[in-house]
Simulated assay, not measured.
Amino acid sequence: MTAPATVEEYLAGFPDDVRTILENVRQAIRNVIPDADERMSYGIVRLEIVGRHAIYFGGWKKHVGLYPIPGLDDELESLIAPYRAAKDSVRFPYAKPIPYDLIERVTAHIAGR
């Protein structure tokens, strides 16, 4: 199977319920960085600001992941801690409500906005 060339192709490859979640994650990120360029990279979506990466997101079997998520200030880190999967990534299970507002706050921190 050929890897998707565009974000739209990537999203179209998911079941409707997961695609909706991924589209909402995409929109939450775009709410903060509307000027970001979107590309496929490493098989997932990368949003860049002025030629540098800002944030990646990808859909998996049971969760949506965001990468890389650096150490955050104490308040934000305490909110993201339940979702930490590794030092620099987070996972939001599809089976639970996705905290889109938290995704926006993390994106703002990463983008310096």
Rank of each mutant, 00 (worst) to 15 (best):
M1S: 10
A3Y: 10
A3L: 04
P4A: 03
V7N: 04
E8L: 07
A12V: 09
A12T: 13
G13C: 08
P15H: 12
P15G: 08
P15E: 07
V18T: 03
L22W: 01
E23A: 11
V25Q: 02
Q27D: 02
A28C: 04
R30S: 05
P34Y: 14
E38C: 08
R39H: 06
R39K: 13
R39D: 11
S41V: 03
I44L: 15
V45K: 00
V50E: 15
G51H: 05
R52D: 12
R52N: 15
H53T: 06
H53I: 08
H53M: 12
Y56F: 07
G58L: 02
W60E: 04
K62S: 15
H63F: 13
V64C: 05
V64S: 11
V64L: 06
G65Q: 14
G65E: 14
I69F: 07
I69Q: 03
G71E: 09
D73R: 15
D73W: 14
D74H: 08
E75Y: 11
R84M: 15
S89E: 10
F92T: 08
Y94C: 08
K96S: 10
K96E: 13
I98C: 15
P99V: 10
Y100G: 09
D101E: 14
D101W: 01
I103M: 05
E104N: 01
E104V: 01
T107R: 08
T107Y: 01
A108S: 03
I110M: 06
I110V: 13
A111G: 03
